[in-house]
Design a protein around this nucleic acid. Sequence first.
DNA 1: ATAACATATGAACACCTATTCATATGTGAG
DNA 2: CTCACATATGAATAGGTGTTCATATGTTAT
Lengths: 114, 114
Amino acid sequence: MPSPIPLHTETPTALSDDKAIELAEMFRLLGDPSRLRIVIETLAGPQSVGHMAAKLGLSPSLVSHHLRLLRAARLVSPERRGKQIFYRIHDAHVRHVIADMVAHVNEDVHEEDA
Amino acid sequence: MPSPIPLHTETPTALSDDKAIELAEMFRLLGDPSRLRIVIETLAGPQSVGHMAAKLGLSPSLVSHHLRLLRAARLVSPERRGKQIFYRIHDAHVRHVIADMVAHVNEDVHEEDA
DNA sequence: ATAACATATGAACACCTATTCATATGTGAG
DNA sequence: CTCACATATGAATAGGTGTTCATATGTTAT
């Protein structure tokens, strides 16, 4: 029979092709400075579009465009409160991934080779 | 005195603007499927350009182009062995960041809200 | 109803980028 | 030296993308 559900057949860090594409798509969205800053803002809690635009020095229109992409990729999710719409990080998974990256960059002491 | 070396002044996940740009640049490079797969290959140990090209189904030329960008960003580093050139992940920092992301995507059980 | 505000959306544009192809550079063998 | 192999590089191009502007949609208050 063809090895059912192989758990540890490859190197500790392997990735199926579809997972690679999925992960690349997430990286791509975070690869734009404006978008990355928007996502990081949501880590502190739900933020309105206007608040983010003001705080980041971007036009509300631009922030909305970026939020649409982040929404479609399920990186953030909207929540209406009166006239405003607050965006939060979509789930704990995304939160952990981003937070880890930020932590890594912040501690950024240059270690030697791997 | 103006609070020296503030450690926990902001939210647990804040980021200076230059760090945000630096991080975004790293995300951007990993945001291309071909490039991401190349980097992931190097996690298993030093790999020659030709080997990667064959394994990933990409032209050696394309792999070389991508490696140039990854090299410039210090994500990978080259090492000559005879005619071939082997690329490895540049340092432990990069290795951890990528490995964490792969791990997160692999365990990918959809949790609820953050 | 209208008005004011908040966000979203569509089009247009300038810019960037991934890929291919052709060519160059470097290396070891004979 | 020449030849074959491995990688790098430059140009050209097709497709993608971030931003701006104008306009639409939705919400609350009067």
